[in-house]
Structure formats: structure tokens, C-alpha cells
Design a protein around this nucleic acid. Structure first.
Lengths: 234, 234
DNA sequence: CTGTTATTTATGTCTATATATATGGCTATT
DNA sequence: AATAGCCATATATATAGACATAAATAACAG
């Protein structure tokens, strides 16, 4: 809360502005007073008001345009923030014990669909890794991944027997670009087997492609155990 | 691009710092020079450097602590931003034509699971709405929704025959809080029927609970047509 | 040696001011 | 009536300096 009558911080201003939006004092599509006017009202400075409004705009509440002013957005195109934690962090956060297990690791020629998806050269070698992640010894996630050794040559020396490729990649590659998709897939016999689920069960699935300066590094498909929910609050 | 040799903007500084992280000049866990030192190096001011570093920290690249300094994060816990558009915007963005169709609208006593989930009073009345969203006349999403009239009394006068409850709610309620979950479910005969999919097909499903100043406004379950993918880039 | 206190330091934030830039609206021109 | 050019204005960003605050370190007391 703001100090009795002293100057308001940018947080206080954010709070007040947000309340005025949420209580309908400032209706959607309406124009806010200019930064100068608000600075006067809050006996603050334009710089401070600017920061408050800028952050509210980043959070999706306001739209700001030079000369045109700041207006309240009507359709809250608010951004859901899903943080993408390392899987052992995600599991540890629930209090469960994390366990990793390698299923397969082999060098193979990239299948054509992968070459197309990652824009690889024809018949390029890729490292194929399959592994399991467990929470309290229950199946949590089945990971199927391809890694392009041409982009990360060091991967050839990695056995991935003790820890998963994601851990290694995150430490090794400061990825520059990422495409992330979520979908629902049907458990085939292999996935069902690994995830201890009936064949045909709906499986929450993530697909992840990582690029390093324009070149595809890795493609991963992550199959979550039945019952998995990805949740966010905002 | 930076002006030849003049002062660097906070964007330029962000860019340079990010490059130094991504090229390994500043390794994970290592400490960056202080804001003062960087300000000197970039012939800028501490305020400007501060903004650059602050934003990089928000984006998940850096960790900053008073007195302790700024260090490079080893696991970039980057945030995936999924914007939550209105469904007709989402469909229009693909170039398809949006069509809406009401399936059912009825006032009923809240089922006990819903009461528990939304912390409703016992035997409270809720408006039950089921509707379909089509893209180019193909099933896109089947929506099942409960709305609490006690929180939004005006909903009683809404027929939802021409447009969906989401549109109406977004315009009417400046929601204060939102819980959003994604999961994979199995199409039962009803869902399969509406989405024109085989029974048992995996269905990408969203669950959404909206609160207005502590009171639950609406609970929605959104079943997407087979093949739906939620994608983001970062 | 241990626990407490004081000091130092890097970040956090605010103030005051100045310049830059986009753009809505006005005006003059075609 | 449409268009091009100009101007006023609100936001965008930069600067310089100050005080606030958290936390690592050093100094100190028991």
C-alpha cells in the first residue's frame, strides 16, 4: 500500500489504474488522461507514470500510441504465460521424486518428414533418442527426440544414460528460437506401453523445435502420462 | 540498428548483451559487470542499462539481485506467451469464415461438482449453455459453459442465439482472475457427434474458469476439433 | 569459534528535464 | 474530393543525479 500521502510508486499507480479499469471507471475503448495529467493527479512524474502504463500495456490491459494516447483494450487479449521449466524441476515442484531412464540412443539418417520439418540437407545424420521421465516411479513423460549433430557436434560424445537430452541441450545450447505446439494424440501400443496407459487413450502431447541461429538443433515430441493438465493463472 | 557511434539505445544494449550470452562470452552462472561499468562501456547511463538488463531478466535470461549483481541464468526458463483471442478472431486470422450456432441454453441447478469447483452456494442456479463454433462450416470447437447469474444478472436476458457467451462475457465482464488448463480428453458420443469425429478420438480440451473480484463468473470447457494444435514461437 | 552488527555495494526506484518520433487533424494544393 | 504537407501533441526514450534497499562482506563482541 502507498505511504500515507507521500509519492506513489509505479506499482501503486499500476494498481490504481488497474482498479479503475476493472471497476469500469475507465471503460473499454475509452481514452485515459495523458501521462502528464496522471503525473499531476498522482503527484508523481511522467517517468513514473510512463513505467506504470507501459507495463500495463505489456500485460495486455492498455494500448498505447504516440500522439493518440492510451486507451483501454476491450477484448482482453491477455497473454497466458506458461513457463517452460526443465522437466525435473517441474516434477520436483510437485514434491515427487524425479527419475530418468534412457530407452534408445542411435545415429540414423533423418527420415524425410523430419528433414522437411527442420530444413535439413538430404540424408543428414541425426541422433535419435528415446527416454522416459518418472515422477515417484510412475510414468510421467515419454520423450522422443532427434538432435542434429552437425549443429552440435559435442552431442556425439553424450551417452544420455544418466540424464536426458533436454538437460544437456539447455546447458549446452543457448537456443535462439523455439517453436512449441500442444495437441492431443492417441496412444499407440508403444506409447501406451511406456506410459502405462491403455492403447487408444488420449495423450497430451507437446512438440518442440529449437533453432540455433537459423539452423534447427533438435525436434522433440513429448508424450505426457494420462491425466496431465497444463495450467496457468492470470 | 545503432546510429554509427552515437549513444546506444536500451534496445541496442539488450541486443549486445543477448549476443554475449548466446555466443558464450558471458557464460551461464557468471556475473555480469555492474550497471555502472556497462554504462561506461556503452557510453550510456545507468538508467538505460538498467532498463535493458531489467527487460532481459523479465524475459528469463538474467537473474538480478541487489548487491549480488546480475548473472546469466543457466536454464532459460523462458515464458511461452499464448495470447487468448476471441474465437472468431482466431478463426478469422486463418482466413476462414466463422459461424456460430447455439445448441442449448437452460437454467438449472448447479451440479455438485461445479458448486465445489466454483465455491458456489448449495443448489445455486446456473445458466447452462452449449454451442458450436465453425470455421468454413467445419466443426472447430464445441463449447460447454456454465454461467453464474448471481454474479452477472444481465445474463438472464441474453439468448445467445446470435453470438456466443464468450463474446458477451468479454464485453460485459472485466474479469479479474482466470484459471486456464489444457488437457487431452476422449471424445464421448456427444462430443464426437458435434465435432464430426470418431468416438474415442483424442480431443484437445481447454478448461477455463473466470472470476470477478473473488466470485466465480463462469466455467467453460472447450473441445477442439481433431487435429487442432496450439502453437507459439519464442 | 560463533553469532551479531556495521559497512559497503549493486540494484531498485524516483525526480527532473530534454530530445526524438509517430500520428491525428488541419490546411493548402491538385 | 482526394492528396500532400505541416503542426501540435502524446508517447518513447535518454540523461543525470539522488535516495532506498537488500545482501555480501568485514568488523566486532562474546
Amino acid at each position: 500500500m502507498a505511504r500515507s500521502h507521500a509519492t506513489m510508486s509505479y506499482r501503486d499507480i499500476k494498481q490504481v489504474v488497474l482498479e479503475r479499469i476493472q471497476t469500469g471507471i475507465w471503460l473499454p475503448d475509452s481514452l485515459l488522461p495523458s501521462e502528464m495529467e496522471l503525473a499531476t493527479e498522482f503527484s508523481s512524474t511522467r517517468t513514473t507514470v510512463n513505467r506504470a502504463l507501459r507495463e500495463l500495456a505489456e500485460e495486455g490491459y492498455l494500448e498505447r500510441k504516440r500522439r493518440a494516447g492510451t486507451r483501454v483494450l476491450n477484448s482482453p487479449i491477455r497473454k497466458a504465460n506458461f513457463s517452460i521449466p526443465l522437466i525435473h524441476d517441474e516434477i520436483a515442484a510437485t514434491g515427487a521424486t524425479y527419475r530418468y531412464s534412457l530407452v534408445e540412443r542411435s545415429l540414423q539418417t533423418a527420415p524425410s518428414w523430419l528433414s522437411a520439418r527442420l530444413s535439413l540437407k538430404k540424408d543428414q545424420d541425426v541422433l535419435y533418442v528415446r527416454c522416459m521421465h518418472y515422477a515417484n516411479n510412475a510414468a510421467f513423460q515419454f520423450e522422443v527426440r532427434w538432435i542434429v549433430p552437425e549443429v552440435v557436434p559435442e552431442v556425439i560424445d553424450e551417452s544420455f544414460e544418466q540424464s536426458g537430452p533436454n538437460d544437456w541441450l539447455v546447458r549446452k545450447i543457448p537456443f535462439t528460437n523455439l517453436e512449441l505446439s500442444f495437441m492431443a494424440t492417441k496412444a499407440d501400443s508403444e506409447i501406451a506401453d511406456f506410459l502405462d496407459a491403455p492403447v487408444g487413450d488420449p495423450i497430451f502431447t507437446a512438440e518442440r523445435i529449437t533453432w540455433l541461429r537459423g539452423a534447427a538443433v533438435t525436434y522433440a515430441k513429448l508424450y505426457f502420462a494420462p491425466g496431465y493438465r497444463m495450467t496457468t493463472h492470470l
